[in-house]
Design a protein around this nucleic acid. Structure first.
Ligand SMILES: [Mn+2]
Ligand SMILES: [Mn+2]
Ligand SMILES: [Zn+2]
Ligand SMILES: [Zn+2]
Lengths: 151, 151
DNA sequence: CTTCTTATTGCAACTATTCGCAATAACCTT
DNA sequence: AAGGTTATTGCGAATAGTTGCAATAAGAAG
């Protein structure tokens, strides 16, 4: 019997959706995990408490939580990762070499989004952007080795 | 017997890869199409000329072309789209409402990438970024209808 | 031209994800 | 509390994409 926020119940009801134990368990599992989870990781956690749950329900519910804007998703290396949406949107920089994730300063994103809005009149969604590249540590290592190989 | 650029052959050979008919056909198919293609669309085109080709080879080769930086990929609506990489990187704005694609001014992206590089010392890959949101036409329609519904 | 090495392919098995559908149960109305 | 409506679930089948492996063939060497 998970104690679920009244907000969640109201949010669903006001849009004609229903509050089910599955949805509560999945939301709670993602919330408790506190980080980015794959559908399979969510399944593993929920399955221990509710063995009858179907994988299809996991996939559908995670998608549903994103539509409700209670969760955000991210594509990384062919996998989808889900996470609870915080008060403020946040973004990530992911290093293609070491796999490290670091936060992307919201201010920089805001400026960019505003510039695109002003100059191209397009409103970019900025829930949860993940951008890929090379972190400082790996860049330094790479230039050192390329210097080496260019001799 | 596709006439293939010598550059392609040399590029592969210099890295220890081999030039195969399959790779030539797939590269040529994507090049001729001139736009964004799904693996299945590539398969359909190549399959007419080379019926023995396997879907696995399509997937593997498209991936390979991206690693060679001869092609770029984009995720959209759960599908991966591939396209020949041009001289200059280019980017897209995709409307979540109407599905329209418009170009994103490279200058705006460059400024953003540079700001991230300067302030966070992270080098973002900027091959082929696709950002999602709301185009002007759809934004106008939406605000009109919300004005209507708020009465 | 022949031989050798091994990168690449096609196949089939496998995994991940989606989808149609009948059974279930949330919740609205009485 | 009971009944009716229909959103949601679990199941199993379908589809999309990946992977291991033996057979093939590209390219290097002689
Ligand atoms: Mn995140
Ligand atoms: Mn493009
Ligand atoms: Zn790194
Ligand atoms: Zn639009």
């Amino acid at each position: 019997m998970p104690v679920m926020s009244v907000d969640f119940a109201n949010k669903l009801h006001s849009e004609g959706y229903r509050l089910t134990p599955q949805r509560q368990l999945i939301l709670e599992a993602v919330r408790k995990a506190g980080g980015h989870l794959t559908p399979d990781q969510v399944y593993a956690r929920v399955h221990t408490r509710h063995p009858a749950i179907s994988r299809a329900t996991i996939y559908r519910t995670l998608d549903f939580l994103c539509e409700m804007r209670l969760a955000v998703a991210m594509q990384w290396d062919g996998q989808t990762y889900y996470e609870i949406a915080g008060e403020q949107p946040h973004h990530h920089l992911i290093c293609r070499t070491c796999g490290g994730i670091e936060p992307l300063a919201p201010g920089l994103v805001d400026s960019f989004v505003e510039a695109v809005s002003r100059k191209q009149r397009f409103t970019i969604d900025m829930d949860h952007i993940a951008l890929f590249g090379l972190c400082e540590r790996c860049r330094v290592g790479k230039s050192a080795s390329s210097r080496h190989s260019s001799r």
